[in-house]
Design a protein around this nucleic acid. Sequence first.
DNA 1: AAGTCTGCCAACCGCCCGGAA
DNA 2: GTTCCGGGCGGTTGGCAGACT
Length: 254
Amino acid sequence: MEMVRTLSIDENGMRKGAWSKEEDSKLRAFIQRYGHHNWPQLPKDAGLSRTGKSCRLRWVNYLKPGLNRGNFSQEEEQLIIKLHQKLGNKWSAIAAKLPGRTDNCIKNFWHGHVKKRLDKEKNNVKNAEISHCFPSTSTFQLPHQADQEKLDTTYEPTRLSNSAFLQYTSNSIESHSSNGLMLTSSGANAKQIVESVELFPELMSFWTEPFVPDTISCDSEQIMSSYSSWEEHFPHLSTKSLDNFLDMYCFSYS
DNA sequence: AAGTCTGCCAACCGCCCGGAA
DNA sequence: GTTCCGGGCGGTTGGCAGACT
């Protein structure tokens, strides 16, 4: 798919937008012959009506030899996820670990593919944890069910110790791998939970802490008002982590 | 068939950093 | 120490193509 930005001329007479084949040829030929030591000067010497910045971008992201513009492999995707987990939005640093890939294409790939996949997994994990947190043997019912049935049951949340959590997840993985049992009917499995905890390390300590908040009612408004005060209960957690937690593990009414 | 929506990605913009003057 | 400037970075936008209604 050829992306074409409308060509325009800025107030200094510089061309903006899509590059023509002639411009590409000029830029490529010039850099291959003379290199690029001074981007602002380069377009003048190369006979291009472009800014140095524009030339640099075109070269780095499109014309430079050795660029890999094909689809991302699964290995590359995994590496990107791992590096992003470690480095955040440091696209250039991530790109440095992937030969032939530019920061721009990794950034685009992230926004297009990876984020979408992780969002999907987050939803699966959320469903898995709701089932875990509120097992079917409990008198608790999910809020929408409660709303439907006008129930007013209560639930006393419990937390697992670190070892219990690990035991729990490893057992789940074992049962999943040995006889194909899924942790929940939603399709999420323990492995996904473990992966999600790896993605958000702070959640591990959060989830396994002994602290138990006030009894939570099934009434949706009461639940949400309880959540709104959780920041006070967990001052050591960043707002972002709390948001992530609520997003992953708690109810959504939207 | 036509209109609308969505995904994708090239390219731009504004900001920041580091080195030179 | 300060200012200037080039290079680089991350975020955002523009617009095409294909999917969907």
